[in-house]
Design a protein around this nucleic acid. Structure first.
Lengths: 261, 261
DNA sequence: CGACTAGTTGAGGCCAGTCAATGTTGGTGG
DNA sequence: CCACCAACATTGACTGGCCTCAACTAGTCG
C-alpha cells in the first residue's frame, strides 16, 4: 500500500532507473533548466531522447516562489497550467458544498499538481505551500503541443494522469476500508518511501503538515492523530518529537498495514 | 456534490450540448459504428470535426459482450486497451494488500474504464459486469496515435483522465468527511443525474448493485445501507422496493447533502 | 510578557460495525 | 405450477472505535 506514485510504477515504462539519481540532492548547485533538473526523471521529461530534451525547457513559461501558506491556485480559478514542484511541498484542498474542506493530497518535489483542472477548464482544488516552495509553471497548451510531436512525452502525460488516478484509488481504499491505526501507518510509510526516493533519510523526517492536516487527509480528527502518535511511540514503532518522525520498527508498522484484522 | 462526470463539466469545453441527445435511447436501432453511436458525446469523439469522425471507428478494435458477473479485466493484467461501455454497466474493484476488496467505481453506458492502467502498464483494478453489458475495445496505442493527429481528440483524452481525477476527489470527500446518511443521499442523487443524462427517468431507477456493493463503494456495511434505505423510506424521501428506487423528495435529499450538520 | 497557535490527554457519547435471527426474491427442477 | 434453495435484504441487540468537548502544556512571536 502506497499513497504516492511508486518508483516501481514509475519505472514500468522503460527509462532511466530511479536509483540512478544521486543519494542527496545538492540544492545549492541546482541549475535552472529542466534538462539539467535533478528531479527530471520524476517528471514529464522522463525517457526523452536528446533531441526532445533540448526543447523541454521551453515548456516552462516561468518559475514561481511561494512562501509558506501562499496559495498557488484556488478551486474555480481558470485552468491554464500545470505546476511542477521544484523544491518544497504543497497540500491540495478540496471543498465540500457546505464550506468545509479536506486535504486531498500532499505533494513533494518532482510532483505535478493542477491535473484535475484539465477536464473542466477550472482547477478543482486549492494548492497551498506547506513551506517555502518553488514551482515551474507549465502552460498546458504547450504540453499538449509538445506531446503531439514527441510520442514518449505524450505517453508521459498520460502516465502522469493515470498514476494520479491509481494514487487516488489507494486513498479511497484507505478511507473506505481501514481503521485509524492502519491509516496512519500507511501514511508514515508512504512518506518514508517518498523521502527515500528523493535522496533523504527514510527513517527520520520532518512533517510539514499539522496534526489537523494529517487528520483531514486521513479522514480522522486531529485528536485521534495525536493519540495514535502517542500510542505508536509507546509501542516503540516510532519516535515522535513534534513534527520530527523517526521510524524505529518498520516491520511492525508494515505488519499493521498488511494484516487484515 | 456529484460522483460522476457532470454534464456541466462535460460541456465546459465547447461541443454539442448534452440535452441534444434523444430522451430515450432506442437500443434496437443502434448502429455498430462509433460515429453513429448515440453515446458518442459522452465519449472521446466529442466535438471532433467531420474529417476526424470518419476515422473514429478505427479506434475500436472489437466489441465484447459480457454476461452479468463476467470479468473484463483483473488487477495486474497487462494493460492494452481502454473500454467504452456501450450498454449495461460495470463495477470496478480495488484490492487491499490483505485480500479484501472495495468497489472503486460504478460505470454506466458511455463511460470509459481501464484508465488507471495506462501509467503502470497493468490494470489497477478488476472490472465486472453488473448486468449483460457490451463494451468497445480501444487499444490505447491507437488512441495515442490518433491524438497526435487530432488536437481535439488529444484534448478529449486528457479531459477524460482529468475528469476521472475530479470524480475521485469527490469520492474522497465523501469517504473522508460525510456521515452515512449523507453518503447514501449523494449516491442516490448522483445515480439519478446519470440516468437523466442517459435519457432515463431520474425519479425512478433500478439499482444494479447489491446492498453490499453499495456499502463497499460508500465505505459502509451492508446492514447500514439497508437501515438507511428503511429510514429514508420512513421519512418519505424515497420509496424502496428491493432494488427499485423512487425518489419522492429530492429537496430534502439535497438538503441532507448540502447542510453541514 | 501575554496572546496565539499547535499539540497532548482524559471523560463521555454517538455513529456505525458486529453478530444473529428472520424475511424476501428469483431461478431451477420436479 | 409449486416446492425448494441460495442469494439478497431487513431488523434488533449489543459493542466499540472514533468524535466531541474540555482542560492543560509547549513553543513562537510581536
Amino acid at each position: 500500500m502506497n499513497l504516492a506514485v511508486t518508483p516501481a510504477a514509475r519505472n514500468a515504462y522503460p527509462g532511466p532507473a530511479v536509483h540512478a539519481r544521486p543519494l542527496v540532492l545538492d540544492i545549492s548547485n541546482r541549475r535552472t533548466t529542466c534538462s539539467a533538473c535533478g528531479l527530471r526523471d520524476l517528471c514529464l521529461s522522463d525517457g526523452l531522447d536528446a533531441e526532445a530534451l533540448i526543447h523541454v525547457d521551453e515548456l516552462v513559461a516561468s518559475r514561481t516562489r511561494l512562501h509558506k501558506g501562499d496559495t498557488l491556485f484556488r478551486a474555480g480559478d481558470r485552468f491554464t497550467s500545470l505546476y511542477a514542484i521544484r523544491s518544497g511541498s504543497c497540500k491540495t484542498i478540496s471543498l465540500t458544498v457546505d464550506g468545509h474542506s479536506q486535504v486531498a493530497g500532499y505533494h513533494m518535489s518532482g510532483e505535478i499538481i493542477g491535473v484535475e483542472g484539465i477536464g473542466s477548464d477550472h482547477y478543482g482544488c486549492q494548492a497551498v505551500a506547506l513551506e517555502d516552495t518553488e514551482v515551474c509553471v507549465m502552460p498546458f497548451e504547450r504540453l499538449e503541443a509538445f506531446g503531439r510531436k514527441h510520442l514518449r512525452f505524450q505517453h508521459n502525460v498520460h502516465r502522469l494522469l493515470s498514476l494520479e488516478i491509481g494514487r487516488q484509488h489507494r486513498v479511497m481504499l484507505l478511507l473506505g476500508t481501514m481503521l485509524a491505526e492502519r491509516r496512519l501507518a500507511v501514511f508514515l510509510l508512504d512518506l518514508a518511501d517518498r523521502y527515500r526516493d528523493r535522496g533523504y533519510s527514510s527513517c527520520e523526517y520532518v512533517l510539514r503538515m499539522t496534526r489537523e492536516e494529517i487528520g483531514s487527509y486521513l479522514g480522522l480528527k486531529l485528536e485521534t492523530v495525536s493519540r495514535l502518535f502517542s500510542k505508536f511511540q509507546r509501542d516503540g514503532l516510532v519516535q515522535v518529537q513534534g513534527r520530527t518522525i523517526k521510524l524505529l520498527d518498520r516491520i511492525s508498522l508494515r505488519r499493521l498495514v498488511e494484516n487484515s484484522d
